[in-house]
């Protein structure tokens, strides 16, 4: 029995354990779920230790004696105080630094998600696509203008916006169905192909 066959058989049994939830909740499902969480954590901890703690904390401080690294290290340790009752306030300091990074992203986000999008919505109305983009953008923006009651002509215009949004949600839902089926296909390809060898 080759290693590949053994590993595929274990993976197949665990996959079937997870699929058994479709029938009803059962201990096999719970076992596979817990095992997955344990293995993920077990894998991640040494990887992070090896790739983050050793090169960015241990080596600079204890090998290269760059004591300035103690400051971010202590800041990082403050995060752990989140779990204590009396000292949880210390965790706010690293959070503040995190927020500063978020702040750095604001102008760039405005550029990418607002300014460039606006520029692309302001195109000459010379084909059906730009006309649809124009109508969709304006009517949806009007729908989200809540200072005026959606009644009469204004209500009819905002209704057009609702239709545009419904089409958008439909497209998203269609893609979601496609994605979920793809994941199922991937698992069944593994079971039927890699494990049972029935796909040629």
């Amino acid at each position: 029995m080759s290693f590949e066959l053994i590993s595929n058989t274990i993976a197949a049994i665990l996959t079937l354990c997870i699929f058994s939830f479709l029938y009803k909740d059962n201990p096999f499902y719970k076992f596979a779920e817990s095992l997955f969480i344990g293995v993920s954590m077990g894998y991640a901890i040494p990887l992070v230790y090896e790739n983050a703690f050793i090169p960015f904390v241990w080596t600079p401080i204890f090998v290269e004696h760059r004591l300035i690294i103690l400051i971010p290290t202590i800041m990082g340790i403050f995060y752990i105080f989140r779990f204590t009752k009396n000292l949880s306030w210390l965790s706010r300091f690293p959070i503040v630094f995190g927020m500063a990074i978020v702040g750095m992203g604001v102008p760039m986000s405005i550029h990418g998600s607002v300014l460039v999008q606006m520029r692309s919505a302001m195109l000459p109305l010379d084909n059906i696509n730009t006309v649809l983009i124009f109508i969709g953008t304006v009517t949806i923006l009007m729908y989200f203008f809540f200072s005026k009651e959606h009644k009469g002509l204004y209500g009819k215009i905002t209704n057009v916006g609702v239709w545009f949004m419904m089409i958008g949600f439909g497209a998203s839902f269609g893609y979601t169905v496609m994605a979920r089926i793809s994941l199922l296909i991937g698992r069944i390809q593994f079971l039927v192909g890699d494990w049972l060898g029935l796909i040629k």
Partner: peptide, 26 residues
């Protein structure tokens, strides 16, 4: 990207901020 994320990324594709996109299994 996964197909779930495709609809969210089309605006960036349409504005040219994404050079191209592969959506899901398709």
């Amino acid at each position: 990207i996964t197909a779930v994320m495709a609809a969210d990324n089309y605006p960036y594709l349409q504005t040219g901020q994404l050079t191209g996109m592969l959506s899901g299994l398709k």
